[in-house]
Simulated assay, not measured.
Amino acid sequence: MRKKNVAAAVIVLLAVLLGGCGNKGDVQETDPVIDAAALTEEEQGEVAESVSETTSEASKEENLESSESSESEQSVTELADGIYTADFTTDSSMFRVNETCEGKGTLTVENGKMTIHISLGSKKIINLYPGLAEDAEKEGAKLLMPTEDTVTYSDGLTEEVYGFDVPVPYLGEEFDLALIGTKGKWYDHKVSVSNPVLSEENAQTGSADTKGTTALEDGTYSIEITFEGGSGKAEILSPVEMTVTDGQAIATLKWSSPNYDYMIVDGEKYLPVNTEGDSVFEVPVLMFDEPVVVIGDTVAMSKPHEVEYTLTFHSDTIKE
């Protein structure tokens, strides 16, 4: 009888303690089966201990959920700039990535903003909208325009399909993404992006998009280079100064000649940053420890002449 009294008292007291978690408007008066005040001192102690243990466990569970949520948010916030492969999941078998992609897309993280490129199964979906269908139909709505992607199936057949660059607000949770097909009707869908894995190329040397320098902290460094090409009459002096800002490295290249009026690096044309003395250029560092082809235009000859050179930036020589 004594154990039954204690158990009943625990239930009553827990109901009182936890009652505040429900809707206050639904609280009803109940007649307690056991009068806690009538319990012996020993029984009251056991009741207090049981309630303490129960509320402690509830508190631990709440703290654990809060901790897991914080860790999840932190993992998204701290995802470093770079190129990743990530799962792209939808709520419909009619709206999914192309079968050749195995449910994945290419996730790009730049300055903390995430975008995933997905290739679809055909050209039947002509626009996407990051939000609800009703908002996509409003005047001025910014729709996502398709790209033309080429996919290759297991039998060797290739096909042109539509792809999209989709903004990703967060990882591991569903968000709204509306679509419109060739029939002209908007549909609501829920999608999610999860399990980002740094691409092999990006992890080893860094791609041209991330310039292979995201691991360096912002600051100014010196780095040794290997210079090859040309007639040997002019060269870029080593070491060079390298400035890293937001993961992007810029090298200041000083020629041993004043006769260079522009350089071409990764298809972009760069002009000298000085007007007197030997030619000086500020260009991006595309990668470390691999030769990079650059063009230098020299006016030392009878007419301007583009000359091809190679530069190698040696990561093991970086000094602050």
Results as ranks from 00 to 15, higher is better:
Ser59Thr: 15
Glu68Val: 10
Thr55Glu: 05
Asp35Val: 08
Thr40Gly: 15
Thr55Met: 11
Glu71Thr: 08
Thr77Ala: 14
Asp81Thr: 06
Leu79Ser: 02
Gln44Arg: 14
Leu39Tyr: 04
Thr77Leu: 13
Ser75Gln: 04
Gly45Gln: 13
Glu53Ser: 08
Val33Phe: 10
Asp26Phe: 14
Glu62Thr: 07
Glu71Cys: 03
Glu46Pro: 04
Glu41Pro: 05
Ala48Ile: 13
Glu42Pro: 09
Glu49His: 02
Glu57Arg: 06
Asp35Cys: 07
Glu68Asp: 11
Pro32Thr: 06
Ser72Ala: 08
Ala58His: 01
Thr77Trp: 05
Ser67Tyr: 15
Ala38Glu: 09
Gly22Thr: 05
Glu43Gly: 03
Thr40Cys: 03
Thr54Ile: 11
Val76Gly: 05
Gly25Arg: 14
Ser75His: 00
Val51Gln: 04
Gly82His: 02
Cys21Ile: 15
Ser66Arg: 11
Gly22Leu: 01
Asp81His: 06
Thr40Ser: 15
Leu79His: 01
Glu42Thr: 10
Gln28Cys: 05
Asn23Ile: 13
Ser72Tyr: 01
Glu73Pro: 01
Glu61Arg: 04
Val76Ser: 09
Gly45Asp: 13
Gly25Gln: 15
Ser56Leu: 11
Glu41Phe: 07
Ile34Arg: 01
Glu43Pro: 05
Asn63Leu: 14
Ser56Ala: 14
Ser66Gly: 12
Glu46Cys: 01
Gly25Leu: 15
Gly45Phe: 10
Glu73Asp: 12
Glu65Arg: 12
Ser66Tyr: 11
Val76Lys: 01
Ala58Arg: 04
Asn63Glu: 15
Ser59Gln: 14
Thr77Tyr: 12
Asp26Trp: 14
Gly20Arg: 13
Gly25Ile: 12
Ser52Gln: 05
Ser52Phe: 11
Ser50Leu: 07
Ala37Lys: 15
Asp26Ala: 15
Leu64Asn: 09
Val47Asp: 02
Tyr84Gly: 00
Glu65Gly: 07
Ala36Thr: 08
Lys60Met: 07
Gly45His: 09
Tyr84Ile: 01
Leu39Lys: 03
Thr77Met: 09
